[in-house]
């Protein structure tokens, strides 16, 4: 089972969150800045894709990630994905920011299967590190459970 982490980062915060995730996940993963991905052929060998993207502006996607979705259509049949969106929480019941909704729509359209509940991480101005690590633990559990079952 091969895992790819794909992220878009404008000012470095998302790449730091990705680095922390990789460390806490403690599994072999390959990390891609989507800005540097030439074509979807670079990603054909992976079984699980974990996306990280901040929300900008008016519930919009980070620009590199938006450009990536328009440029590289992935064939995700039989493959899984998970999403962490970053943003600023506004204080009431809506904990989502917008990037996840756009990412998710594309990944489902490309026939991907969502592995687990996504994360909307409050990252501005302070990053909720504990919340991130809780999700990474949950993600790790889902990976172990699902892929152990697949390999049995």
């Amino acid at each position: 089972m091969k895992i790819a982490i794909l992220y878009g980062s404008s000012h470095g915060k998302t790449s730091k969150v990705v680095a922390e995730t990789v460390q806490h996940l403690n599994m072999p993963v390959d990390v891609f800045d989507v800005r540097l991905i030439g074509s979807s052929s670079e990603l054909v060998d992976y079984d699980l894709f974990i996306f990280f993207s901040p929300t900008y502006g008016d519930e919009e996607l980070q620009s590199d990630m938006e450009e990536f979705l328009l440029r590289c259509e992935l064939s995700l049949a039989g493959k899984h994905f998970a999403i962490c969106e970053l943003g600023s929480y506004y204080g009431y019941e809506d904990f989502s920011f917008g990037a996840m909704r756009i990412l998710r729509k594309h990944l489902l359209q490309w026939n991907g299967c969502e592995l687990c509940e996504p994360l909307s991480l409050d990252s501005f101005p302070r990053t909720n590190r504990e919340h991130l690590l809780n999700w990474v633990d949950y993600l790790k559990g889902q990976i172990n459970e699902h892929f152990r079952f697949c390999n049995a």
Partner: peptide
């Protein structure tokens, strides 16, 4: 407890 997201409440996670 902070939920990971409100998505599950809105439409159910597939």
């Amino acid at each position: 407890v902070w939920p990971f997201t409100t998505l599950a409440q809105e439409e159910g996670v597939k």
